[in-house]
């Protein structure tokens, strides 16, 4: 019932967008060029969301930990890369790798120190990660200040790329972000389908079966997953810092987006995260551009209505397993 209503509203929304995009025909004078740019914005934003959300969903899928410090690790990665590129004059690529390492390391330490011995107490772990994120965010504010700053993109991605239609060009870096998301998605897909760890994630194995499924080194696998998941948050931060900018408060807004993405699809589901990222990126951009002017400042609200509706209909997300 509610599901049908949600689908109907979604389809109507999309029709509304398409109607406005094509109402003046396909000519250069029409709305199509803008539509293409907005769609690209939505898609590349989806890529960014997917990169950071994939780390969150990995950690959840394997450890059943909802890491609410994910946003702080995201921002940390961005700031580390900023410092390395701007002050140490390091190349963007090396800085990105080191930033991933830094976020991964901090995540690993948090896991080892605070979360490891609370396995299975999901709300307590969530509270712990909230506390960690408060501390991290305040420390970053102390060290990096409150002025929004952006990371300079690598040289050859700095110039816009000509799209070849309607004389349009588009920032190369944002397209690279989409490619990176596809690469991350592909790697995940390989891990999920080809390895035992992936099997565990997909099956939603519970604690008692975990050891037999993963062998004796469960704790090492968990630690690695936490490192990789946190490093992906850091990578997201580097991309966000380059394509957009870094500022205090972004930890929360990106944590919330990553949660929306992961929850919409169902925690632990990779395909769900991809779908969630697409939905969030496109809804965000289309709503900002195509909602009637008097409602356009409500576009931020729409995302959360979407989340609430999906959770109301399916309490564990679109592809989430009932627990």
């Amino acid at each position: 019932m509610a599901a049908t209503a949600a689908v109907v509203v979604g389809v109507l929304g999309l029709l509304g967008v398409l109607l406005q995009a094509f109402e003046k025909g396909l000519g250069t004078e029409g709305n199509v060029p803008t539509f293409i740019l907005i769609t690209l914005n939505g898609l590349t934003l989806a890529g960014l969301y997917f990169i950071s959300a994939s780390g969150l969903t990995l950690i959840f899928g394997l450890l059943r930990v909802t890491n609410l410090a994910h946003g702080a690790l995201f921002l940390l990665g961005g700031y580390v890369a900023l410092e390395l590129v701007q002050d140490a004059g390091m190349s963007w690529w090396l800085a990105a790798v080191l930033a991933m390492g830094a976020s991964g390391l901090v995540g690993l330490v948090v896991h080892q120190l605070f979360l490891r011995w609370n396995q299975g107490q999901d709300l307590r772990q969530a509270l712990i990660t909230i506390a960690v994120s408060l501390i991290l965010a305040d420390q970053m504010l102390a060290h990096f200040g409150a002025t929004p700053t952006a990371i300079a993109p690598p040289e050859w991605l700095a110039q816009p790329l000509s799209l070849g239609v309607y004389d349009l060009s588009y920032p190369r870096f944002r397209l690279a972000m989409l490619v990176a998301a596809l690469v991350v998605g592909l790697l995940f897909w390989l891990v999920y389908t080809r390895t035992r760890v992936g099997m565990v994630v997909r099956a939603g194995v519970d604690d008692t079966q975990m050891t037999s499924a993963l062998g004796v080194n469960v704790q090492r696998v968990f630690a690695a997953a936490f490192f990789v998941g946190s490093a992906l948050a850091g990578l997201g931060g580097v991309f966000a810092g380059t394509a957009l900018s870094l500022a205090p408060g972004q930890d929360q807004s990106f944590l919330v987006s990553a949660l929306v993405v992961v929850i919409v699809g169902g925690m632990g589901s990779l395909g769900g995260a991809a779908l969630g990222a697409l939905l969030l990126g496109l809804v965000d951009q289309y709503a900002g551009a195509y909602l009637p002017a008097e409602y356009s400042n409500l576009s931020a609200l729409l995302t959360f209505v979407l989340l609430a509706v999906i959770l109301a209909v399916r309490p564990t997300g679109l592809f989430g397993k009932a627990r």
Binding site: T66, L259, I263, V305, A308, L311, A312
Partner: peptide, 13 residues
């Protein structure tokens, strides 16, 4: 945790 997050959505809305 799902309850926590759906109420977070309410808070944001």
């Amino acid at each position: 945790i799902y309850f926590l997050i759906i109420t977070l959505a309410f808070a944001q809305v």
